[in-house]
């Protein structure tokens, strides 16, 4: 489904990723965890084809060319226009996305998506007036709209209140049951582990451990804090 060989990425003199090789099986949820600066965000951006690697190669669904229509990313920058409303964002994307193929599942309507992320009350007001949590919910709605096969989430729990976090839990569960392939980078290791099949521990731009998600929390507790 998704393989990366000796992925390297440098920003100036700093190597954000040092020869990372991973192999993601279709339909599984993989958790990326590690301290700040371990290279999680860089890896997510490379796998989402938002950035090109300095060295190494990636193959998405078996091809070297990223099929961006089948890949969706939730990044730190939410990608919204402050002067458009939630509904306008989803309507715009709806008319920009390619028509749904005969076999593919139909796309949820903007109204339905806003309902699912709990934004229907404010769907008409400008994103400028939204709280950080509401902006994140809109980002989820835009992410789900694509029905992508590969979904990359960069710290989905950040800037969310408790019921926002519940929404993420529900989202991860739903994506898993739909058989989508999910890669989620997070600091909430314990919470995410419940929804993930396996996990990758990154540190200093290298993969220092891979294994079952259930074993991941132990690694974080064991490692001395800070």
């Amino acid at each position: 489904m998704l393989t990366a060989r000796d992925l390297c990425k440098r920003h100036g003199a700093f190597w954000a990723l040092r020869s990372v090789t991973i192999d993601i099986v279709g339909g599984t949820t993989t958790m990326l965890f590690g301290d700040n600066g371990a290279g999680k965000t860089t890896l997510v951006r490379l796998l989402a084809s938002a950035a090109s690697p300095t060295g190494g190669s990636i193959s998405w669904f078996g091809s070297a060319e990223p099929a961006r229509a089948r890949i969706a990313m939730l990044s730190h920058a939410d990608g919204h226009y402050d002067d458009l409303s939630a509904m306008e964002h989803l309507n715009m994307a709806e008319s920009l996305l390619p028509r749904v193929g005969p076999g593919a599942p139909p796309r949820r309507s903007p109204a339905q998506l806003l309902e699912d992320v709990g934004l229907s009350a404010r769907s008409g007001s400008l994103v400028r007036t939204y709280s950080a949590g509401m902006r994140k919910r809109l980002a989820f709605a835009r992410l789900l709209q694509k029905n992508a096969d590969l979904i990359l989430l960069d710290e989905p729990y950040s800037a969310l209140d408790p019921n926002g976090a519940l929404l993420v839990d529900r989202l991860l569960g739903e994506l898993h049951s739909l058989g989508r392939t999910v890669i989620v980078s997070t600091h909430q290791v314990e919470r995410t582990a419940k929804h993930a099949d396996n996990a990758i521990h990154l540190s200093g731009g290298r993969v220092i451990w891979t294994g079952l998600a259930s074993d991941a929390p132990a690694r974080v507790v064991a490692a001395e804090p800070g």
Binding site: A48, R68, S75, A77, D78, G79, H80, D82, L96, K146
Partner: peptide, 17 residues
């Protein structure tokens, strides 16, 4: 600036557009 702000342009490029 409206596009670059919040990474809106990147979101469109990855849609893909």
């Amino acid at each position: 600036r409206l596009d670059v702000q919040n990474g809106a342009l990147e979101a469109l490029v990855l849609l893909p557009v």
